[in-house]
Computed example of a mutant assay.
Amino acid sequence: MSSSDRSKDDKPRKVEKTEAEWRAQLDPMQYEVTRNAATERAFTGKYADHSEEGVYHCVACGAPLFASDTKFDAGCGWPSYFQPLRGEIIERVVDKTHGMVRVEVRCQDCGSHLGHVFEDGPAPTGERYCINSASLDFKPKG
């Protein structure tokens, strides 16, 4: 999805900020991923090989997204999870960019791009949420 497509997302959100406020809050990579649907390079994100117990939150608004016990090694180079903490926190949008048809996932609370979901994950869901580390913040258990 291009920047121009993202700006057309005028759906009311729980967390809304101006582009200037997002730029002030997020580092350049976080901004490009969450606000412009960019993708970090495979195997470069800080959570790709992360295995600490806790919860992964949206870096933009702090919404809890994924528990560490749903994270698995998909070998794809991005953190992968088989289900979100609660289904309604993830918004699914058809993404027809780059000559492909995929399902983009966004944070329901702020509209931030997180990554994509695929139907090649493990049981019990069969889904693989392939998420950019730059869209995540981690809070350790306890």
Score class of each variant (00 low, 15 high):
residue 1 M to P: 14
residue 1 M to W: 08
residue 2 S to C: 09
residue 3 S to F: 05
residue 4 S to H: 10
residue 5 D to G: 04
residue 5 D to F: 04
residue 6 R to G: 06
residue 7 S to T: 13
residue 8 K to W: 10
residue 9 D to P: 08
residue 10 D to P: 00
residue 10 D to C: 07
residue 11 K to S: 13
residue 14 K to L: 08
residue 14 K to R: 15
residue 16 E to H: 08
residue 16 E to A: 14
residue 22 W to E: 07
residue 24 A to Y: 02
residue 25 Q to V: 02
residue 25 Q to P: 11
residue 27 D to R: 11
residue 29 M to C: 03
residue 29 M to V: 15
residue 31 Y to R: 11
residue 32 E to K: 12
residue 33 V to T: 06
residue 33 V to Q: 07
residue 35 R to P: 12
residue 35 R to D: 08
residue 36 N to C: 13
residue 36 N to V: 05
residue 37 A to M: 15
residue 37 A to H: 10
residue 42 A to W: 08
residue 42 A to E: 15
residue 43 F to W: 15
residue 44 T to V: 07
residue 44 T to F: 05
residue 47 Y to K: 06
residue 50 H to T: 11
residue 52 E to G: 11
residue 53 E to G: 06
residue 53 E to S: 14
residue 53 E to A: 14
residue 54 G to E: 12
residue 55 V to W: 14
residue 55 V to R: 11
residue 56 Y to E: 08
residue 56 Y to N: 09
residue 56 Y to K: 01
residue 57 H to E: 12
residue 57 H to G: 06
residue 57 H to S: 09
residue 60 A to T: 12
residue 60 A to L: 01
residue 60 A to N: 08
residue 61 C to R: 02
residue 62 G to Q: 03
residue 64 P to Y: 01
residue 64 P to E: 12
residue 64 P to M: 02
residue 65 L to F: 07
residue 66 F to D: 04
residue 68 S to M: 10
residue 68 S to G: 14
residue 68 S to H: 13
residue 69 D to Q: 10
residue 70 T to D: 14
residue 72 F to T: 01
residue 74 A to C: 01
residue 75 G to A: 11
residue 77 G to E: 07
residue 77 G to C: 05
residue 78 W to H: 05
residue 78 W to N: 02
residue 78 W to F: 09
residue 78 W to S: 03
residue 79 P to D: 06
residue 79 P to R: 05
residue 80 S to Q: 03
residue 80 S to Y: 04
residue 83 Q to A: 09
residue 84 P to K: 02
residue 85 L to R: 03
residue 86 R to L: 05
residue 87 G to V: 12
residue 87 G to D: 15
residue 88 E to Q: 12
residue 89 I to C: 07
residue 89 I to A: 14
residue 89 I to L: 11
residue 92 R to M: 10
residue 96 K to G: 09
residue 96 K to C: 09
residue 97 T to M: 03
residue 97 T to K: 02
residue 98 H to L: 13
residue 98 H to I: 01
residue 100 M to A: 07
residue 100 M to Y: 14
residue 101 V to E: 11
residue 101 V to R: 10
residue 101 V to D: 02
residue 102 R to N: 05
residue 103 V to R: 00
residue 105 V to W: 00
residue 106 R to T: 01
residue 108 Q to I: 00
residue 110 C to A: 00
residue 111 G to E: 08
residue 111 G to P: 13
residue 112 S to Y: 08
residue 112 S to P: 13
residue 114 L to Q: 05
residue 114 L to G: 03
residue 116 H to I: 03
residue 116 H to Q: 04
residue 117 V to N: 02
residue 118 F to K: 04
residue 120 D to H: 07
residue 121 G to K: 00
residue 122 P to F: 03
residue 124 P to A: 09
residue 127 E to H: 09
residue 127 E to G: 00
residue 127 E to S: 02
residue 131 I to Y: 01
residue 135 S to F: 05
residue 139 K to C: 00
residue 139 K to W: 01
residue 139 K to Q: 08
residue 140 P to S: 01
